[in-house]
Write a protein that binds this DNA or RNA. Structure first.
Lengths: 223, 223
DNA sequence: GCAAATTAATGATTTATTCAAG
DNA sequence: CTTGAATAAATCATTAATTTGC
């Protein structure tokens, strides 16, 4: 299923006849995508508990094994036989959140590479994890914002105190995140599926100007 | 350009086709939950000043109490050797440089607090250290840039710097600029930075150099 | 106390939308 | 109007956290 350029193709096809047999060509190798119309009752199909087989660690829990090699990171089993999803460590989450709070929303390729290299010290990670994390975190922060605004938009009892911090002279009111939704930059980077050949390398990094937008700074004079 | 841009490239992950699709139980109400109650250690700051930064925050947050700073990283002396100055660890430097490269120059107090809290996991640090680091680093990068611009009037011949950053899960042999006949089809993600303009800034070159030196891939040395 | 069952959280994919070229 | 890039929204799927019965 080394299918590439799928979504365009799919759109062209499915937007006309979504339920055609062609549409059955799901890309997902497993987990039969149920169509809304023909959705079987997925009411807790108590099939085998393969879960117990593929994850034979339900019983033993690591009781802080002191024999482990440095047992470094909090959790995150490093066994990834076949490919489990990324299980971030606390350090990684902390750094990512720090970056997010710093203003980063959609890091470009170079930044992702840097971040990945950095976070790789604290656990297994790859670039796409970083990318997805920012995507998800951004989206879910938005959701949270929206929910909160609906629920308790009234009587804003200073729920989010803008702490007026005083650091020497640069006490700064950090403007909240939430960049405007239509601030599309042409930071065009994309994922590629290195499958056939190396593309003509003709790119370069260095986007100091752009990064300045990612990080809302407050250039101020020296004290 | 026969681009193979695929957005669903995780095919590689599934190429193993790990197992049968166990009964994926759908049906998840998943109410909008806010306040996870186990929110990370974001000490809700209300206000502080530079003195407040001085806070030996190194509280463990792991479930496993056998937590111990991996000595491979915490190369610095744990015990505050008297009244000496801050001796940053490799992690701290890496994170700070990552932030710097991300565009941060003069973080405000809140950001400094966050950074300090984060970096405190890897060694003793105070807020003022973060603040001074940014000040010094900014100034010294400027110096370096000035020096380089003087002695580096001619641009290097290497007009096509490798920039197709290839991130891979495992330690892949990343070939150098020269195209090696070794063109393995690694099924992993890579990031390509497409630029829309013919960048002609000579500073990009040294920028890249700095990147490499800022993020050594081997967390070693540094004591 | 343990572990299956359930739930909450979140990583990873897919689909829809938007904007800019051509 | 068509097409492609970029991204937001929605959805799927898996893991941890929690509950629950023993």
């Amino acid at each position: 299923m080394g299918n590439m350029k799928v979504h365009q193709l799919a759109r062209g096809l499915w937007e006309h006849e979504p339920s055609l047999s062609l549409g059955c060509k799901r890309l997902r190798p497993l987990a039969p995508k149920l169509h809304p119309s023909s959705s079987p009752d997925h009411t807790s199909v108590s099939s085998f508990d393969l879960k117990t087989f593929i994850r034979p660690e339900s019983g033993p829990r690591k009781l802080c094994p002191s024999d482990d090699k440095r047992d470094s990171h909090s959790r995150q089993v490093e066994t990834h036989p076949g490919g489990t999803r990324w299980n971030p460590t606390q350090e990684q989450i902390g750094i990512l959140e720090m970056l997010y709070r710093g203003g980063m929303r959609t890091p470009n390729a170079q930044q992702i590479e840097q971040i990945t290299a950095q976070l790789g010290k604290y656990g297994k990670i790859e670039g796409k994890n970083v990318f997805y994390w920012f995507q998800n975190h951004k989206a879910r922060e938005r959701q949270k914002q929206k929910r909160n605004s609906l629920g308790l938009s009234h009587s804003p009892r200073n729920s989010a105190p803008i702490t007026t911090i005083t650091l020497d002279t640069r006490g700064e009111v950090m403007e909240r995140e939430e960049d405007s939704p239509y601030k599309r930059k042409c930071r065009s980077w994309s994922f590629e599926y290195l499958e056939e050949e190396s593309r003509s390398s003709s790119s370069s990094q260095e986007e100091e100007n752009r990064t300045l937008e990612l990080f809302p700074l407050h250039p101020e004079g020296r004290s």
